[in-house]
Computed example of a mutant assay.
Amino acid sequence: MQEFLLFKFYGLQVWQYLGIVAFLAGGFIAYKILGWIFNFALIKIFSRTKYKEILETYIKTVYKLSSLIVVIYIIYDNIGFLKLGRAFKKTATIVYELIIPLLIFGILYKLTYLISDIIRHLASKTNTKFDKSFASLIRRTLKVIIFIIAGIYLLNYLKIDITPVIAGVSIGGLAVALAAQETLKNFFGSITIYLDRPFEVGDWIISPGFEGTVEEIGLRSTRIRSFNNSLITVPNGKIIDAVIDNMGKRQYRRFLQFLRISYETPTPVIEDFIAGIKSIAEEHIYIVKDNIQVSLHEFGEYSINIRINLFFDVPDYLTELQLRQELMEKVLQLAENLNIKFEKPNRFQS
């Protein structure tokens, strides 16, 4: 039996092959046991928190990677027992020093989504779309940081000396600074937007050069959907320097119209028409009651002009459009009932 175990096959003895199989089998069993322990422990710890449902989504990935890290460490620490030689030990060391950090970075990368989802959960209680966008910004920023750290570690592991690179940057510092100026300006512009909150996703904004609805606020730029359905991408550095008229932040939405009626309209009918419009506005549940203005405005060249100025108390533009239509239909119906004729603007008489 001893002779069989010492028999060499492709450079290794039989007992060494059996040891490798035992290590792999034991590692697999340990991985399953540790996975169960980590899973049970994490669920126990976080089951009492208010983020239980969010955490459960990521617990599986975290406990699997954590278990794998522990198993790889145990195998690497004890593999010398098999006396597999210096070449194998060197290869195992390279693999170990490369895989363990990658697994750790994998956990950190997954945690960026966890942090983002927790922020989104908190934002859902604030009823603001801006905080939801902030969660995406945090996730992207953390990703960039993780990739930078991973890149530095990889360069260091491959023994690539970054001193010449740093020296080159210092020599060409002016060129690099000029090239990075816009990028840094846009990045800090995004930070300013999130801190100052001049607008949020879904707001209708107007500024010299662009107008539309904000769709996304990114690290470098903000994307705006124009009313022509085109997508406008504006660097954040330019947005923070621009004058922004945020129509989405209006407390009320103004309705201003001028009705041009014929000079042939009798005065009593005009009075009934104005009173009727006021009555329609006062009965409307979404019109601000203390600021209804309906009155004769001026004697135009070809018409008597009535001015209507009031405000809708509604949350969005689509609702505003619907209520404007309803109001205008009622005014038209009133005009029809009173036999009032509207004059075209700038009508030329023969």
Rank of each mutant, 00 (worst) to 15 (best):
F342R: 03
G218Y: 00
D196P: 04
Q16L: 05
F23W: 00
L158I: 08
L114F: 13
K83A: 04
P164F: 05
L98K: 03
L24C: 09
L84T: 07
E216P: 00
I146V: 03
D313F: 02
G19S: 03
G248S: 05
G27W: 00
D131I: 15
K249H: 04
L321K: 14
F255A: 04
S221R: 06
F130A: 14
R307D: 13
A242D: 02
Q349L: 14
A123L: 04
M247K: 13
K330F: 01
N246W: 08
E53Q: 11
N305H: 12
Q257G: 09
N78A: 06
T319R: 04
I277D: 03
I119G: 00
A167P: 07
V214H: 00
S190E: 00
F28M: 14
K125M: 10
T91G: 10
H297N: 08
S47A: 12
I54L: 12
R307K: 13
Q2I: 15
K185W: 15
I94P: 08
F40L: 11
I149V: 11
L296G: 08
Y157I: 00
N127S: 13
W36G: 08
D117Y: 00
K330Y: 01
D245C: 06
A281R: 11
F273L: 08
L6R: 15
V214I: 11
Q2T: 14
K129T: 09
L256C: 12
I148Q: 08
L178H: 07
A135E: 03
A150R: 02
N236I: 02
T112K: 02
S230G: 07
I104C: 06
Q325H: 12
I224T: 00
G173C: 04
L321A: 13
F28H: 12
F105G: 03
A175C: 11
H284S: 11
L12H: 09
I79Y: 01
L334W: 07
G276S: 06
I138D: 06
K330N: 09
L142P: 06
G172L: 10
S116Y: 08
A150P: 04
K125V: 15
L174D: 10
Y76E: 10
E282L: 14
H297K: 12
V214Q: 01
A179E: 03
K344F: 13
E264I: 06
I277C: 01
S221H: 08
V62A: 04
